[in-house]
Design a protein around this nucleic acid. Structure first.
Lengths: 189, 189
DNA sequence: AAAGTTTCCGAACATGGTGTTCGAATATTC
DNA sequence: GAATATTCGAACACCATGTTCGGAAACTTT
């Protein structure tokens, strides 16, 4: 009872078409018709598999989700020192450096970022289901890490291009674990 | 050469209608027609003043901007000990607790949040124009503080309602200045 | 390889929101 | 009160969404 080949072909064609389009165009400017043309798929077929463009995006990101999950299990098993989930994430993003649109500021990249945020938050919760968070509420800690990761990635892609993934990740880790020098912000905070 | 009364009346009616609708309905689901009905304004008139729904929202935020800047400068004048810019910001937001829930997520929330981010980043830079940031790039530090503030506020309004502004601000300060307990995230970061 | 099943296609259709146009009616300013 | 500016409302063209349908094609099963 394997999945019909045509189904896989259709879905992969749509996944690839979406990614391909995102490389050239802001997400919210992409229409379903654009995707159909790019993928060579009929309109009725699209709606037989996905309920909307957002649905397609969500499911496309399952690949990313699988990558992160794989990292968790492998790093747990092998306990490799440098291979944490967030570290792998930076490597992964490095491969997509040519997609400024996807993570760009403004409304275009918002939907993509929020979708990624959801996955990252989910993975963080999975990894630290009951670790102590001190006086800080668990939910807030998760949200903070997600937004710090998001911010660091955007900064890296837009203004820190000279840094490698390891260095960018180190900045992220420092921000989250050690915080910001007090002297730098004493007048604001 | 004062502005025609009708113009002011029309624009205020539209501003108010939008705010009123946002309290009941997600921004994305609000149509221009909804706004027209709520405001009692003709379609043609709307497009004589604003190019789109987003444009209307953007301009509505100018009021917010003035409000925030005014709050900040007045707090400087008072110069009370412990009354930092971000601390006052939490007090200010506390007054609008019933509003931003609808703005918090989705596209509309994004527009609002980005507008606030811009203002906050502007204020941070003004307050700490040349403080040392250690090994961390200044731009990244500013972005990080902005997003941490944004995240804490959102969490506070959505899930931390039991806390007062002082407590919420304390959480924000701790996150930014001391970071997150290492044990809590050792598997992720 | 043929029968039976599932999927794909593509064009048509209904729906609903967007933004524009126009002359006539109305409010405002000077 | 005359000149000017704004508003109205209805109609219009436009575009994207999501659905429907029967016939064609691909796949699976035996």
């Amino acid at each position: 009872m394997a999945v019909d080949r045509r189904v896989l072909r259709t879905r992969n064609a749509l996944y690839d078409a979406l990614v391909s389009l995102i490389r050239r165009k802001a997400y919210d400017l992409i229409t379903v018709e654009d995707i159909l043309r790019e993928a060579g798929i009929g309109r009725a077929t699209f709606y037989a598999h996905f309920t909307s463009k957002d649905d397609l995006l969500e499911r496309s990101l399952d690949r990313l989700r699988e990558l992160l999950v794989a990292t968790e299990t492998s790093s747990k098993a092998a306990a490799e020192p440098g291979q944490t989930v967030s570290r792998v994430f930076f490597d992964h993003v490095a491969q997509y450096r040519d997609i400024p649109v996807a993570l760009a500021s403004g409304r275009g990249g918002t939907i993509v970022r929020e979708a990624i945020d959801r996955i990252v938050a989910e993975r963080i919760k999975a990894v630290i289901p009951s670790e102590p968070t001190g006086p800080l509420p668990r939910e807030l800690v998760v949200l903070h890490i997600v937004s710090a990761l998001n911010t660091t990635l955007r900064w890296w892609l837009e203004r820190g291009q000279h840094l490698g993934p390891a260095e960018a990740h180190a900045l992220f880790a420092r921000l989250v674990l050690k915080g910001v020098p007090k002297e730098a912000v004493k007048l604001f905070i």
